[in-house]
């Protein structure tokens, strides 16, 4: 006889599905952020399961900074089409007009304009009152105290001192007009859980996660892949071919690659189990200062 004991992945899956359903029940116009990364892919699978055999009752939103890896965009289009989802792409046109790049404005300013501001524009433009994000509490210290339903004022700002207590599985989604919430169905997942889930579910992921020889440059102790000509070379710099892969994905000039030979899911999981560094190491934006994520989140970053 079955004991109905859930494994940790089944329990996390059930929790994520319940969170997604709860938002659809409590909010009028939700949207799911889709960044094409592994977390987004796992979160999207939970959403598909939550409403099966029906379709998703909300669209996906991709905030395109215009410096994403080319492969991400082609993978995105193919993946979304094959699953039959509706995708909205948003680019901060003011930013594009001003000609801002990570090279001429610095990473902080660039991220603020093309990610944080762009996201806020998109949410306001469509009037979304709830936005799902794939962030996990294990990613970074300030995330560890983030609620599952994270309340934002009408300026999309987060106040870490004024969060609603969250008990049991009872979520308070009451908001005044113009206010919204960010929702994190993967709050209790770790990087390892996400990979294990993708492995269990056999979900296709973007091949950038798997090692292969790619043209990279060494900058500030990280390997950066030169995905196109927009990235100026310093004097004496020549891209070299190295077997690398990415643990996280974002804007290519801001995303560090790791040297690796892990070329499939099994090998990636094994590498991670033996790894001694966290995935955020590959992210340039967190490095600026201790507490930088907290500052960005207060301003409206995911």
């Amino acid at each position: 006889m079955s004991t109905f004991q859930l494994t940790h992945l089944e329990e996390l899956e059930a929790e994520g599905i319940a969170i997604i359903r709860e938002v659809v029940a409590q909010f009028e116009k939700p949207v799911m952020l889709f960044s094409i990364g592994k977390d987004s892919i796992a979160m999207l699978r939970l959403a598909e399961k939550a409403f099966a055999p029906g379709k998703l009752p909300f669209p996906l939103l991709h905030v395109n900074t215009t410096f994403k890896f080319k492969e991400m965009i082609s993978f995105r289009d193919e993946f979304v089409k094959s699953r039959g989802h509706q995708l909205i792409e948003w680019i901060n046109q003011d930013g594009v007009k001003s000609g801002i790049t990570p090279f001429n404005a610095g990473t902080q300013r660039y991220t603020h304009v093309m990610k944080t501001e762009a996201l806020k524009q998109a949410l306001s433009h469509y009037g979304f009152d709830a936005a799902f994000g794939g962030a996990r509490r294990d990613e970074e210290k300030s995330r560890a105290k983030e609620r599952v339903f994270s309340f934002r004022d009408r300026f999309h700002q987060w106040d870490p001192k004024n969060q609603r207590p969250e008990l049991w599985n009872l979520y308070n989604g009451q908001v005044a007009k113009g206010e919204s919430i960010r929702v994190f169905p993967l709050s209790n997942w770790t990087e390892l859980d996400v990979w294990l889930y993708i492995y269990r579910e056999q979900i296709p992921v973007i091949p950038l996660y798997f090692a292969k020889p790619r043209p990279v440059l060494q900058r500030n102790g990280t390997w950066i892949m030169r995905d196109d000509e927009r990235m100026p070379l310093e004097p004496g710099e020549t891209p070299e071919l190295r077997s690398v892969r990415f643990r996280t994905l974002g804007c290519y000039p801001l995303t560090g690659a790791v040297e690796s030979t892990a070329s499939n899911l099994r090998e990636v999981i094994e590498e991670m189990l033996r790894s001694r560094t966290s995935e955020r190491q590959g992210r340039v934006i967190d490095y600026d200062e201790a507490g930088s994520m907290e500052q960005k989140k207060k301003e409206g970053y995911f």
Binding site: H8, R137, D138, K141, S142, R143, A144, K145, P160, K161, Q163, S187, N188, T190, L192, A290, G291, E294
Partner: peptide, 24 residues
């Protein structure tokens, strides 16, 4: 220091909220 998440709290040297941690 690993546990105290928010900057302001870190400077006060106290944890003032619920923080979630994961290990396996």
């Amino acid at each position: 220091l690993l546990m105290d998440g928010l900057q302001a709290e870190r400077e006060q040297g106290i944890t003032i909220d619920v923080a979630y941690r994961y290990f396996s």
